[in-house]
């Protein structure tokens, strides 16, 4: 890995961390699991600019750092299952070429929420959270679409050398 790559990934990781922190400052809408997912901007940017492997590494490093800095073991499990499922959906959708950044990111947002719900079902040992699925599906769709639109602009406007 050359110095330029090290610098670039370091910068992207720092950006993702700052966005996670920024989002934690925003008032919570009061419904668990409903959030914008600002840090996903950086992950999607990396997915399109650098490829799937850097995006996966960036996402995992971010989840680990955020959980160690602001969270605990439980929040790590939730973030991790959300991030993994989201990437597992976004990578093949992007590769299929059928969707733009917005579509890929929307599916990623819904998958992220589904992942967190699965983690909640496993950790809390209850399957009675299904009534919550529509809420998370709608919020994931809107949050994902918003982040996807923003990411598409970023990917288009940030100069190639970056």
């Amino acid at each position: 890995m050359d110095a330029k790559k090290v610098a670039r990934y370091g910068l992207l990781t720092a950006l993702a961390l700052v966005l996670s922190w920024l989002e934690s400052l925003l008032p919570s809408p009061g419904i668990p699991g409903v959030k914008l997912g600002l840090a996903n901007l950086v992950v999607v940017f990396a997915l399109y600019r650098a490829g799937w492997l850097p995006a996966v590494v960036l996402s995992l490093v971010r989840v680990l750092l955020v959980s160690f800095l602001f969270g605990n073991g439980v929040s790590l499990a939730y973030s991790l299952s959300g991030a993994v499922l989201s990437l597992a959906v976004m990578i093949p959708l992007k590769a299929s070429g059928k969707f733009s950044e917005t579509g890929v990111c929307t599916a990623g947002g819904v998958a992220h929420n589904a992942g967190q719900l699965i983690a909640a079902v496993v950790l809390l040992g209850t399957t009675r959270l299904s009534y919550y699925l529509p809420v998370l599906c709608v919020s994931g769709t809107f949050a994902g679409a918003a982040i996807g639109l923003a990411a598409a602009e970023l990917i288009r406007r940030v100069p190639d050398r970056f």
Partner: peptide, 25 residues
């Protein structure tokens, strides 16, 4: 464009699925 149309189909499909599930529940 093709991808744009697919995006909208995807978003509409997800919202529709959520709506049907919510109505059912």
């Amino acid at each position: 464009k093709g991808t744009r149309r697919n995006d909208i189909k995807l978003i509409a499909g997800l919202l529709l699925a959520a709506g049907i599930l919510a109505l059912f529940l």
